[in-house]
Amino acid sequence: MLRPYGPVVRDDHPPFSYPDYRATVKRAPRSDLVSILQTLSETTGPGPGWSEVSEEDSDLTSNAGTGAAAIGERIIVTGRVSDEMGRGIPRTLIEIWQANAAGRYVHWRDTEFDAPLDPNFLGVGRCITDEQGDYRFVTIKPGAYPWRNHFNAWRPAHIHFSLMGPSLGSRLVSQMYFPDDPLLDHDPIYTSVPAHARERLLARYDRAVTEEAWALGYRWDIVLRGSAATPGEDGEG
């Protein structure tokens, strides 16, 4: 059954070219996108099948498998994945990656920043939303790190999130940031988002998620484009 969804509202997202983020200048299309009617190729997508075959791996403080804990400020990051109508999206895969507490990624290209790697931290996790669309990771608060975009360019602490969602059009890669980070207003990747929508990228401290004498809790809800529920499967309406 075809259930086309509304068009992308470009004002909810960054522009393709945002010269303050220099790498966008030569990687942004100049021609207008060609608008097409959604067909089965667009209203379906890899999300449901990919979620089925992926395993949950949601504790980044231990999933390096060394038997020792990762170093840094242990945090819980949780939230709900829903569609634009507010309906939770159940059983959908979330993939995340991030720097360690010192601001270093476990990646062969991350060599310029002289910060230590942590042998007990990979910085990669996967999680599948529950029946309500809720997810939960345990991880380490990532550190800020420098990049070469401009003088004294430092990325604010962030966690990369990737979601397929129910259809091709619901594909989302985004970044979650932490509240009150002084680097946010100097970061062109964050400020590329139109001002009215920026706060959607900010997690908020949540005392109810925080666990006594163990870890601070942050909540970040994610809204995917479109309408998720299939007939007869509507969640909480």
Partner: peptide, 16 residues
């Protein structure tokens, strides 16, 4: 509800 804005995958996505 407004959709969560897109952000770049950056240079390190291949780890995940």
């Amino acid at each position: 509800r407004g959709p969560t804005p897109s952000q770049t995958v950056g240079p390190f996505f291949s780890m995940a």
